[in-house]
Each structure stands twice: as structure tokens, then as C-alpha cells.
């Protein structure tokens, strides 16, 4: 069933049940997101896709479109700045040292920082000590960089038992990403690569992968995260 909604005042047709991120992308409007993976159930953890729906702030990945919905993405200066602030919070909460990170150039958080025009975080950088987990033979966890998106928790499972390999321990500022080293050791190289690619930051690092691509030829240097998000959708 088709519904009519407006995005930044522009009236568009959309398929009922599709979420706002997908509908916006189909119509050439990029909404940044760090936890949503197209085709997977939404997680709604990062809130970077916040937009105004009929005047209220909502995470676009969590909201299916319905008839008459008025969506503000870029028309409203407040919501544009709010998304920027959310990205800045992530940069000040963890220790995101891009110059020393294997994921730099392939990192969705970094690429999203560029899209929201972040030059510096308006929040004080916290420099919380976090311990690196080397226990597994296949991957290590660079916890400084985890943004608690829960992609790995929900989307990476042991192929034999279906058990979760990653989990989040603790709450609030005591949260930490954990790995079941025994299950992780059973991961195939393909699954390891999938997990590390799925991680929107440089937290899950494939032990066989380093600084493979030269500067200037890295994923988001070849094509920006915005162009990639729109390319998949734009008809």
C-alpha cells in the first residue's frame, strides 16, 4: 500500500511500512545512521538518524512511514545540529584516535563526522581508560572505539549453535563490549571479516587485517558514506 508523506516540505509517495531512513534515501535524502543496517531489524541505539516527525524528535530507523506524516531532515536547523551533537558525543565519550586506527578511511563514525561537518566535539573529551581484549585468536576488541551500536551483538552468531558471540556487560558508563573467545575462535575467516566490516567503528579488528589500503584509496575516500547510502536506494 502506498502512502503520501512530506520530507522537508517535498511531497513523496512511499510504501507503507518502510522506515523513514529507507524512504528518504529512495528520494535522494541522506539521513546519517551508525546502527541501522538495511534489511535487518532496526536497533535504534545510536540515534544519529534523529529527525523531526510531525514536530517531535524521533530516530528515523525506528519509524515506519504512515499517511500524511511530515518529516523534517535538513530544513530544520535545530535537528541538523542535534544530529551533529550526537556524533560529537560519541567522539568525546570514547577515545577515537583516527590517526592510529586501522579502520580509518573505512570507519562509518569517521565518515559520518565528515557528513555532519564535525570539526571538533563541543563536549569535553573524556579519555576514559578501556582495556583491549586480545583473548580470541581471530579478532581483538579495541574498546576505546566501541559506540555500543549492538550490531555485532544482534547480527553475529555462532554458525553451529546460533549463540551470540558478542555481548554488552554492565550499564551506563560501566558498559563494555565483551566477546566469547571460545565461540570467536570457531569463526570462519569470512565471518570474522563480516563482523569487522559490520562494526561501524574500529572496535572489532580482524587480526589478519591491518592498514591494507593506502591513504586516498580507502573505502569512504573512493566514495563517501552519503553517496553509498543513496546509491543503494536511489532509483
Amino acid at each position: 500500500m502506498s502512502v503520501r508523506v512530506t520530507i522537508d516540505g517535498q511531497e513523496i509517495q512511499a510504501r507503507s511500512g518502510d522506515n523513514i531512513i529507507d524512504v528518504a534515501a529512495q528520494n535522494g535524502v541522506y539521513i546519517p545512521s551508525l546502527c541501522y543496517v538495511k534489511g535487518k531489524p532496526c536497533l535504534g541505539t545510536c540515534r544519529t538518524c534523529s529527525v523531526k516527525v510531525d514536530g517531535s524528535v524521533m530516530a528515523a530507523c525506528t519509524i515506519p512511514v504512515r499517511e500524511g506524516m511530515e518529516i523534517e531532515v535538513n530544513d530544520d536547523a535545530e535537528i541538523v545540529d542535534m544530529r551533529k551533537a550526537l556524533v560529537e558525543l560519541l567522539f568525546s565519550e570514547g577515545n577515537h584516535n583516527c590517526p592510529s586506527c586501522e579502520k580509518s578511511g573505512r570507519c562509518e563514525l569517521q565518515a559520518t563526522g565528515y557528513e555532519v561537518d564535525m570539526m571538533v566535539s563541543r563536549f569535553p573529551y573524556r579519555f576514559t581508560p578501556r582495556v583491549v581484549d586480545h583473548a580470541s585468536k581471530t579478532v581483538f576488541l579495541q574498546r576505546d572505539r566501541c559506540i555500543f551500536c549492538q550490531r555485532c551483538v544482534d547480527m553475529v552468531r555462532d554458525e553451529r549453535t546460533g549463540k551470540k558471540i558478542f555481548s554488552i556487560k554492565g550499564r551506563g558508563t560501566h558498559s563494555s563490549i565483551e566477546i566469547d573467545a571460545e565461540l570467536a575462535n570457531e569463526m570462519t575467516p569470512q565471518q570474522v571479516r563480516h563482523a569487522s566490516d559490520l562494526c561501524p567503528v574500529g572496535c572489532i579488528i580482524d587480526k589478519t587485517q591491518g592498514y591494507d589500503d593506502p591513504i586516498g584509496q580507502r573505502k569512504f575516500e573512493i566514495k563517501s558514506i552519503k553517496d553509498r547510502a543513496l546509491e543503494k536506494e536511489h532509483r
Binding site: 567522539f91 577515545n95 584516535n97 583516527c98 590517526p99 592510529s100 570539526m119 571538533v120 566535539s121 573529551y125 579519555f127 576514559t128 581508560p129 578501556r130
Partner: peptide, 19 residues
């Protein structure tokens, strides 16, 4: 104008901030 990672957020020298 702050120029570069060290000026903007501390950069490589700030790696000592967790110790």
C-alpha cells in the same frame, strides 16, 4: 584557529591521558 588533531582534541600526546 586550532590546526590538527593535537590542537583540536589532544591527539597522539593525549594518549597519556588514560594513564
Amino acid at each position: 584557529i586550532s590546526v590538527g588533531a593535537c590542537a583540536v582534541w589532544g591527539g597522539t600526546p593525549a594518549m597519556r591521558n588514560v594513564v
